[in-house]
């Protein structure tokens, strides 16, 4: 009786093998560009390296303990924390505000939708250069405005008090396009009938916003908050162009600090240790967000 024969391992795994075949291209790509660099970084973080970036001396966790005692690193962490705090909530609230505006059915609203999302189409480098001009102390737009209003001049990028704030402002501007687009998409997905029904009940705009829009948008908001958080932790381009981490390391965000450690100081070991620390921080923040935030999310 052939039907009673147990199917062999080869036959049992037929589905799995087919699936693997389909996954092969992405597994290959991910391995080369994600997994290998990741494990290499973890590996390097336990070594002191030579100038070529090759592992030279095994030091175990010494790189990490060095980091925790280093005031530069602590400062960098603080700056990053502040930067995230400045950019993420304000960026999302502004994007949500614009998305709500642009979601109204008005004539010519398409123009505004394009404008609000246009920052998505500008590279970080290009927009940083534009902001560099605007922040320029003598000929920049902001200081001109201040002098018109008879207010004292501000050294936007040169004053340690202001530099992080300035960088944050330009970052908010850069990120708004993407958040706006995603939130607008989320808003457009909300069934128009829900609003009509609530209008018949007599709900005002803010009541609708609170009881319908925000709960219905919560999956999108959750997504954009997660992405924005991760993005903010990884900001690099605007720092490099606007301030190079200065003045007096006030804008030395962690990714920029990693870059300097590795490619200017050639300390690949400590740079890797910082990178791993950043990875762990982002992981923890994201997990926390999922644990705490997802309770408030209403999936359909």
């Amino acid at each position: 009786m052939t039907s009673l024969e147990k199917p062999g391992i080869w036959k049992k795994t037929a589905n799995g093998r087919t699936a693997l075949l389909y996954l092969l291209p992405s597994i290959l790509l991910f391995s080369v560009f994600v997994f290998y660099p990741m494990f290499r970084t973890i590996y390097l973080s336990f070594f002191l390296t030579d100038q070529n970036g090759d592992a030279a001396i095994w030091v175990g966790f010494e790189n990490y303990s060095y980091l925790l005692e280093s005031t530069a690193f602590i400062n960098s962490m603080k700056a990053t924390g502040l930067f995230v705090l400045y950019t993420v909530p304000i960026g999302i609230v502004l994007a949500l505000f614009f998305a709500l505006l642009a979601n109204e059915k008005l004539k010519g609203i398409g123009f505004f939708r394009t404008v609000y999302s246009s920052t998505m189409g500008i590279s970080v480098a290009a927009s940083s250069v534009i902001w560099l001009f605007m922040f320029n102390p003598s000929m920049g737009m902001f200081n001109r405005l201040l002098s018109l209003l008879n207010l004292p001049q501000i050294q936007w990028l040169l004053d340690p008090q202001w530099a992080l704030l300035s960088v944050s402002i330009s970052t908010i501007w850069m990120n708004i396009g993407f958040s706006f687009l995603i939130l607008l998409g989320g808003l457009q997905n909300i069934d128009e009938h829900l609003y009509e029904s609530s209008r018949i009940d007599g709900a005002g705009y803010f009541y609708r916003l609170r009881r319908i829009t925000l709960p219905m948008l919560s999956p999108t908001l959750f997504f954009i908050i997660t992405i924005s958080l991760i993005n903010a932790f990884q900001s690099f381009g605007q720092i490099d162009i606007l301030t190079q981490g200065g003045p007096s390391a006030s804008t030395n965000l962690i990714v920029y600090s990693i870059y300097r450690e590795a490619f200017i100081n050639y300390q690949f070991g400590t740079a890797s240790a910082q990178a791993v620390t950043l990875f762990i921080i982002i992981l923890v923040v994201t997990i926390l967000q999922f644990k705490l935030g997802e309770r408030r999310v209403h999936y359909q």
Partner: peptide, 16 residues
């Protein structure tokens, strides 16, 4: 709509 003192049932029910 709310001043007209009516209620409405939608085709797709429009439940929240």
């Amino acid at each position: 709509p709310d001043k007209r003192d009516l209620s409405m049932v939608f085709q797709n029910y429009a439940l929240y």
